[in-house]
Nucleic acid binder design. Structure first.
Lengths: 347, 347
DNA sequence: CTGTTAGCGCATTCAC
DNA sequence: GTGAATGCGCTAACAG
């Protein structure tokens, strides 16, 4: 009930508060006997140090924040899982900020990134604006980005250019030459670098295979299944439509699958689809995709952050995680004859 | 940089710290002129009050915790979204604890639920043990459960007995008489009440329709798609197998769909499948399910918690959210040969 | 080794 | 209305 304090323990054990504090922070210089006396007092009183007071005295918040678009991206949740996994073992609390709009993002960037607020923050899939950059640099709180590439900050990323190439190369090796590209990188207020890089990879492979880039084969919109659904229907509606589509996330890919079904196209016979991330549901859907280590990206992110919180380093670090093609059942060679006509069925 | 404190502001504005504090907490009794003086000082110094110090002084942690098995249950993430949505508008921080094992759960129940640590906690889908109950009751921190029914605590739940009945009734009304039941409530260290209640509803409807309960038609295991997959294969392997399966979560239902596909059963022609929750992917899979308001359960949970933190109430409150049958494409009448059509009047 | 004391930054009395 | 003083619970520095 009434909070028992360090003073109560001291009195009960017949020692000074300093001593109690010492055993709490297991300082080496305290005799075995008094230590055990204090320990049993703590036990008897069921005492737990007040973390708030501890933090104030320490001048540290002992908390780490993560800012991310959690709920629009299943992949982010998996990264969060990795983060939580590591933080649970530490003395830090994990506080979460969900971003669904760019105004919310700006607000969080402004308010969260203050030394008084948290000791460190992990930002997932959100690129800072130029005027955020300065504030971040001099904020005094350590920051590491996950799934974002920025020259000035520490980050854990995958080589998204390479990922984009892997996906595109897979499609090309299957025999496709009309390859659509679907992403959400148009939303420049968020501006995920990942999408831009994957697009670059896409272009590179196309060029390497001597395939002309066809602008009408790529579409960019917001990140949601339904948005992808609409975009895909548009892509599939053009004359001489793509025989394969590379979507920059599994969520988008699912929207493509829906559109294909809607439009009466068999996957993979009439249309190949490849996603990105390998979120859990991808396996169930037998979706071919580019896997990246989501959980691990969270783990590595926190580890890096904790390190940098210890010793503010000069240069930003970069951890590059691997990316891997996972072949499943949504990609196949294009059908021998030219693309079948589309029959618009009502749902 | 060097943290600017309330004292700096006071000096800059030429007033006392008390006054600054007053305007910060917009106390009514402070003259307009000094107020603006202070305000501009705050502006000029880019001052933000140190939340830690504030908390210590206030004697409140200004943080709310949520303990839940987030990553094994997509539905929990959606509830979390509702929680975050409300908390973002408040002055509270949200800290998260993920539970994947029962030992982790016990640890969190023990350490998190202390007044020094948080002002309130939301526990999702985790039932306290008997010896937790006492501690919770006298912990001094407000607690509300979401998706857990317990006589002694405030909670926001759905009527899971009714939900179980709705699902079963739907199947029966379609003509099914051999109905399997799949859940994860065997895991008694977590012991989700929801599953037990849904099973009760299942039994009630069976009885109302004069269908004998067949123990070999129900299976219980851990909560995962692959576990459901195995269980379903077992269920479908028995002689005179079920023509329909009610799974107590969409995740489990997906495992059932996989098993059906594996075994060569067409859904819904050869086998009807109904889930529970209506998580996002359910719509894509065209899964018939029992929808519950996940997001809203989070919203209501926090609201209730915030209320109770204001005024420790005597009796536990209970908020009952609705449950709704969502008919999609995984349920249909059993194929003519195997089951005679019966007439059963829906209530 | 151990008790005592001075802050940590803020909210909140209490006088003026 | 407003400034000064006290305390929130803990850590760390300083004597002893």
């Amino acid at each position: 009930m009434s909070a028992t304090t360090i003073r109560d323990v001291a009195r009960y054990a017949g020692v000074g508060v300093g001593t109690v504090s010492r055993v709490l922070n297991d300082s080496p210089d305290v005799s075995v006997t008094t230590r055990s006396k204090v320990l049993s007092a703590i036990e008897a009183l069921d005492y737990t140090p007040n973390p708030i007071a501890r933090r104030l005295s320490l001048g540290k918040t002992l908390t780490i924040a993560v800012i991310a678009p959690f709920f629009t991206r299943p992949s982010v949740v998996e990264r969060l899982r990795g983060i939580e996994h590591v933080i649970a073992e530490s003395e830090y609390d994990l506080i979460v900020f969900n971003v669904e709009t760019s105004s919310r993002r700006d607000a969080y960037f402004h308010s969260v990134l203050r030394r008084e607020r948290v000791d460190g923050v992990i930002i997932i899939s959100l690129l800072p604006r130029d005027n955020d950059v300065d504030r971040l640099k001099q904020a005094g709180t350590s920051v590491v980005f996950v799934d974002v590439s920025h020259p000035q900050f520490s980050q854990v990323i995958v080589d998204d250019v390479e990922g984009g190439r892997q996906a595109t190369r897979h499609l090309i090796s299957l025999g496709h030459r009309k390859i659509g590209f679907l992403s959400d990188y148009e939303d420049s207020s968020f501006y995920f670098t990942a999408n831009r890089d994957r697009f670059t990879g896409y272009c590179q492979e196309l060029e390497a295979a001597n395939i002309a880039l066809r602008p009408e084969f790529s579409a960019h919109g917001v990140h949601s299944r339904s948005s992808a659904y609409e975009m895909a229907k548009r892509l599939l509606g053009v004359d001489d439509r793509p025989t394969a589509i590379f979507a920059t996330s599994d969520t988008l890919a699912i929207g493509v699958l829906e559109a294909a079904q809607q439009v009466g196209l068999d996957v993979p016979k009439d249309l190949s689809v490849i996603g990105y991330d390998d979120i859990e549901i991808a396996e169930y859907l037998r979706l071919t995709t580019i896997r990246q280590s989501l959980f691990e990206s969270g783990v590595e992110g926190v580890k890096l952050l904790l390190e940098e919180m210890e010793s503010m380093p000069g240069a930003p670090a970069q951890i590059l995680l691997p990316t891997e093609l996972v072949r499943r059942d949504t990609t196949a060679p294009p059908s021998a004859r030219s693309a079948p006509r589309i029959f618009w069925k009502s749902r």
